[in-house]
């Protein structure tokens, strides 16, 4: 890939997205898509700008981002620790393997009401379900990362007579880093989805809650403004993490 500036495919991609947005705008303006259903993108953008300017939803935005940050941090730290522990105990790992393989088939989100009963309608219930959704991705990535450390590196560490701590820090961690980062990326994406979805179904604050609230009150302008905000935040965050991820992955292939 070229550094700085877009590739040919990058330009085409940009053109496709721009064309899509323009077509959408045109269909709305011509009245093919009625205003009661969807607003033209330009109005969504002005509505979002207006919402940010008046600061009407600043508290909700902060609360959502805070929950996402806490949930991702918790699942990354706990998932990493659990991954190391499970990797160190092969017998336990063999037993847990079917659970790890089919975990994401289970609609974990169905357990959100249980957390609501335990914690009440609060940030803690939201963070708990978001951690439950994202932690297994981090555990799985940690396991892959530790599995893929080349044996020659371990041997090199032995030749240098490194202690366990030095080996972990200087050899294992950098060697496993690309896979660990994939785990971090996934954990963040799942945490974001978990937080927004729980706010949407039942909560008292947050962006998801405000979108559901605006929907129930037919406040389309607010609803589409906030929707655009979620799309922008999710896309930008994922694009940044994805770019770093690709850089690290290409280092593996060298």
């Amino acid at each position: 890939m070229k550094r700085g500036g877009l590739t040919r495919e990058g330009w085409i991609r940009l053109a496709v997205v721009v064309a899509f947005v323009l077509a959408f705008e045109l269909l709305c303006r011509l009245g093919v898509l009625p205003r009661t259903v969807v607003l033209p993108p330009s109005e969504m953008a002005t509505s979002l700008w207006h919402l940010l300017e008046t600061g009407e939803f600043t508290a909700d935005i902060v609360s959502t981002l805070q929950d996402v940050a806490i949930a991702s941090a918790l699942s990354i730290a706990l998932g990493f620790a659990l991954g190391i522990a499970i990797h160190a105990l092969p017998r336990l790992r063999a037993t847990l393997e079917p659970l790890l393989a089919s975990y994401y088939a289970i609609p974990t989100f169905m357990f959100y009401p249980v957390f609501i009963v335990v914690f009440g309608v609060s940030d803690r219930a939201i963070i708990a379900i978001a951690v439950l959704l994202s932690i297994v991705a981090m555990i799985a990535s940690t396991l892959t990362g530790l599995d893929r450390i080349p044996r020659v590196l371990r041997k090199t560490a032995a030749i240098y007579r490194m202690g366990l701590a030095r080996r972990a820090l200087l050899i294992d961690l950098p060697a496993a880093a690309p896979h660990l980062f994939t785990g971090i990326k996934l954990a963040f994406a799942y945490a974001f989805i978990g937080v927004i979805a729980s706010e949407f179904i039942l909560s008292g604050q947050g962006i998801g809650y405000q979108i559901a609230y605006a929907y129930n009150n037919f406040e389309n302008r607010k609803m589409y403004g906030l929707m655009l905000l979620v799309i922008i935040v999710a896309t930008v965050a994922n694009a940044v993490l994805d770019t770093i991820d690709r850089r690290l992955q290409s280092r593996l292939r060298r």
């Binding site: 989805i193 979805a197 979108i211 605006a214 929707m227 999710a234």
Partner: peptide, 8 residues
């Protein structure tokens, strides 16, 4: 993308 946002 958290697709729940698009449910409305």
């Amino acid at each position: 993308l958290p697709k729940v946002t698009l449910y409305p």
